[in-house]
Amino acid sequence: MKEVKISVNNFDLYYGEKQALKNISIEIPAKKVTAFIGPSGCGKSTFLRVLNRMNDLIDHVKIQGEVLIEGVNIYDKQIDVVNLRKRIGMVFQKSNLFPKTIYENLIYGLKINGIRDKKVLDETAEKTLKQAALWNEVYDRLHEPALSLSGGQQQRLCIARALAVEPEIVLMDEPASALDPLSTAKIEELIHELKTKYTIVIVTHNMQQAARVSDQTAFFYLGELIEYDKTSKIFTNPTKKQTEDYVTGRFG
C-alpha cells in the first residue's frame, strides 16, 4: 500500500461560466511520478494549478471540492497560499527565468524567505545545480545572465530554482515540450532521479514520455478524469474505450 500525498475529492472548477474541471477525484502517491495526459484543452494545466492554488491568481475562477495534502485541505480558510506554494515547486511549460543572473534566479526563492546568509545561499545554489545535473555546465558562469543559457539548460535551471526552496511536491507542466530530444532526455533522467525525494506530478501530451517517466497515469478528457491507474496498466490494458483510443493514437 502506497502512502498518499495528495488526495482530491469531487473537485469542480469554473472559468466564469465555463466549467473546466468536472468532479475530479484522485489520489496521488508520495515519492512517485504521476503523469496527467489528455488532448490539448482538456484541463490538465488547470488541474495542475489547482494543486498549488495558482488559479487563485486568475480572476473569475470559481471552485468547489477539496484538495487534501497530507490530510490538510489546502483550500481551507486557515491555509496560507504563499506558504503553500513555498512547499510546492512548479515548473512551467516554457522556461520563465527572470532576466537576472543564473545565481540570482537560483536563490530567488531563498531570498524572498528572508535568507541573506551568503554561505547558505552559495551552498544551496551548488547543491540544487548538482541535483539538476547542471553544475558541470554552469559552475564557472553563475553570475552571467540566465537567459544566455540554451533552452534545455534554461528549463533545467527552472527545475533547480524550484528545488532550491526544498519543496515536497514538484509540479511540472509539459516541462520538455519546447525542447529538442537530447534536452528532453536529460530532463526525463532528472525526473527519474528526483522521485526518490519528491512527489512529482507532470503534465505531458507526449505519451511515450508519460510511459517512460511515470508510475501512475491519469487520462483527462473534456475536463473529466476518465481513467487513473498504474502507468503500465493505462498503456497496455486500459479499462475505458476513450483511454484506449487516446493512448493508441486512434483519437478523434
Binding site: D12, I26, E27, G71
Partner: peptide, 12 residues
Amino acid sequence: AEQSHITDIKTP
C-alpha cells in the same frame, strides 16, 4: 463536497 472512495489506496 463529499469525500470520494477509491478503495485500494489508503486515505490519510
